[in-house]
C-alpha cells in the first residue's frame, strides 16, 4: 500500500513540477482576450504553402476571412469544400486565409494539393496563434474588416449557407 501511495505521489509530484514550470501559460492566455470582436486582430507571421512568408497586416485593404484548421480535425476539413465553393464568388471582395495549425507544413500542403483547393492556405505557429487568438478549439473562423478589426468570429464548422451569411457581414 505504501509503495502504491509513494508511486502515485511521485507521479503526481512529477506532473505538478512540470506544470509549475509551465505556469506562465496561464497568464500567457490573457493577452488573447484582445482577439475579440471590435478589437484589432493580432498580427502574426505565416508561410503560404509554396513557402512565401507573409503577415496578416499585409492582407489589409480588404476584409479578411481568417480560418484556423488542421488536417487532424474532422470538422475543419469537413467545411473546406464550402470555402472552396464560395471562394470564386468572394475572392475579389474578401481575402481568404486558412491557417493550418498542423505539426508540419508538409501535411497541410499534401492535403490541400490532394483536394485541389484554390483558396489561399498558410501555415502558422500553433503556440503563437493559440495564445494571440485564444483559440479554444478548431475550426475557428474570424472575419476582419479592411483595417484588421474583428467583425465576427465563430468556433465550429459552418455549412455553405452559414459561411455565406458569415462573409456577408463584411460586405
Amino acid at each position: 500500500m505504501k509503495k502504491i501511495l509513494i508511486c502515485l505521489l511521485l507521479l503526481l509530484a512529477a506532473m505538478a513540477g512540470g506544470c509549475a514550470a509551465d505556469s506562465s501559460k496561464t497568464t500567457a492566455a490573457a493577452p488573447a482576450a484582445a482577439a475579440q470582436a471590435s478589437q484589432t486582430a493580432p498580427d502574426f507571421s505565416f508561410a503560404y504553402l509554396d513557402g512565401t512568408k507573409a503577415s496578416l497586416t499585409q492582407l489589409r485593404g480588404k476584409p479578411v476571412f481568417l480560418n484556423f484548421w488542421a488536417t487532424w480535425c474532422p470538422p475543419c476539413v469537413g467545411e473546406m469544400p464550402h470555402f472552396n465553393a464560395v471562394y470564386p464568388r468572394y475572392k475579389d471582395k474578401i481575402n481568404f486565409l486558412a491557417v493550418s495549425l498542423d505539426d508540419n507544413m508538409q501535411e497541410a500542403a499534401a492535403f490541400i494539393q490532394q483536394q485541389g483547393y484554390s483558396f489561399p492556405v498558410g501555415y502558422g505557429n500553433v503556440n503563437d496563434l493559440a495564445g494571440k487568438y485564444d483559440i479554444q478549439g478548431i475550426p475557428t473562423s474570424l472575419l476582419l474588416d479592411a483595417d484588421g478589426k474583428i467583425i465576427a468570429s465563430k468556433i465550429g464548422a459552418m455549412t455553405e449557407t452559414e459561411l455565406e451569411a458569415f462573409l456577408q457581414k463584411a460586405l
Binding site: 506532473m15 512540470g18 506544470c19 509551465d22 505556469s23 506562465s24 501559460k25 496561464t26 500567457a28 492566455a29 488573447a32 503556440n127 493559440a130 495564445g131 485564444d134 479554444q136
Partner: peptide, 11 residues
Amino acid sequence: GRLWQGSSKSV
C-alpha cells in the same frame, strides 16, 4: 473558460 496551453498538455 480557457484551456491550459502549457507544454504539459502533450503529456
